[in-house]
Design a protein around this nucleic acid. Sequence first.
DNA 1: GTAGTCATGTAAGAGGTTACATGATTAG
DNA 2: CTAATCATGTAACCTCTTACATGACTAC
Lengths: 225, 225
Amino acid sequence: MSLRHAMLGVLIVQPMTGYDLADYSRATDGLFWEAGQAQIYPELRRMEADGLVSAKEAPRGKLAKKRIYAITKKGVDELRRWAEEPLVYTAIRDPAHFKTNYFDIVSLDVSKAFFESHIKHHKALLSEWEDRVEGMRDRSASLLARRLASKPAADHDAIVEFRVLALEGQIGRAKAEIAWARQGLKVVDDLRSQEAMRKARGSRPPVASRARAAARARTRQRAGS
Amino acid sequence: MSLRHAMLGVLIVQPMTGYDLADYSRATDGLFWEAGQAQIYPELRRMEADGLVSAKEAPRGKLAKKRIYAITKKGVDELRRWAEEPLVYTAIRDPAHFKTNYFDIVSLDVSKAFFESHIKHHKALLSEWEDRVEGMRDRSASLLARRLASKPAADHDAIVEFRVLALEGQIGRAKAEIAWARQGLKVVDDLRSQEAMRKARGSRPPVASRARAAARARTRQRAGS
DNA sequence: GTAGTCATGTAAGAGGTTACATGATTAG
DNA sequence: CTAATCATGTAACCTCTTACATGACTAC
């Protein structure tokens, strides 16, 4: 139940409305766990029922109202309990890696386009994560700044370093995806030149093809790294 | 809807029962998409209703029966259509990276244990993926061997290379996680020595702490790579 | 006045997990 | 004969997504 703890992790900095929480879920600063309003409002009600947050109704203009949620002592305890609890590793289901399994029944052009867009997507993610790291390092991330202000200076390094580390995890992931997609482009190229060769000299069966030799080279490389 | 296509991807090699499919979902060879029986049996019925597979009732012993599912022409078309279709990238929610955000409210011992078990977990995954690659390279993976047998030699490289590539994606991921967790252990060490220093010379506020200097070094390293 | 934002919700459905339920078959 | 395996399902529940619904507030 990570959404709950993502919300506690923001509310521990300052009280806010469900609307604000939904905003922070996509902000550079925030939840680190995207969620729509359809998830956030009911979850806040459940958390209130569980005593992890308390709501205060505040007026908004003349007629409207809003509910401002604050974390309770019990909520802080729950956040710590969850953070200390060992992680349960679940099955990995990666749609991108999975899909390439079946690229033997797809044209090389489509495969190539897939890897190119994979690179593009992860380059965008990469630069976003790196911007966030800068925001933490120079303390311009507003939630972080507010959190630091409420804590003794001795704690500041731990707060910043672990948040940066979380981002470094995403950065490492994005870099690995980019490297993998480049490997994919290489496979496509190898298969394409192999195809061209077969076409050029009739359809003689290739005993040791270029692609297979290249593959062996890659395996050796992997073993040596 | 990747489960459906994972199942088609196995049934394209040979017809089998739902029970067999559930087995292959965890086998070294198989689905690449874990799923329990509670998902597989109803999905097979839906796929049958959609005309992607056809079932043949076969006797099992004297009284019992089993349903053997085979892929249809429509099923093969659907597998190709899905493989060609661009991937829709969804929000990333990584519980491990996410959790480290909150390690400032957790003891350094617990944090250390987290990173150590993260390394252990991903080393195990890594060696499993690498074994699978070997099984593909030497053609001892039974589903792969059967698939190759039904296809012309000219297609073999593409089949093997893309399946190996999918595994390389997982391998790259596991390696990135291990590297990240080691970075995490370093952060813990830095914070621990910083803590020890503070304890040794009273609680003078540290202007430029070791941990922050180390962090700057890491940022430079990242920028240079 | 009107468009965009603030604010709070409900409903339906997809996909996955855990637990429960049943019974035949086969290997020892 | 007994335990493990083969085989097929259902039910409840959780998380997340998409779409719909409502209405006040604010800046222009």
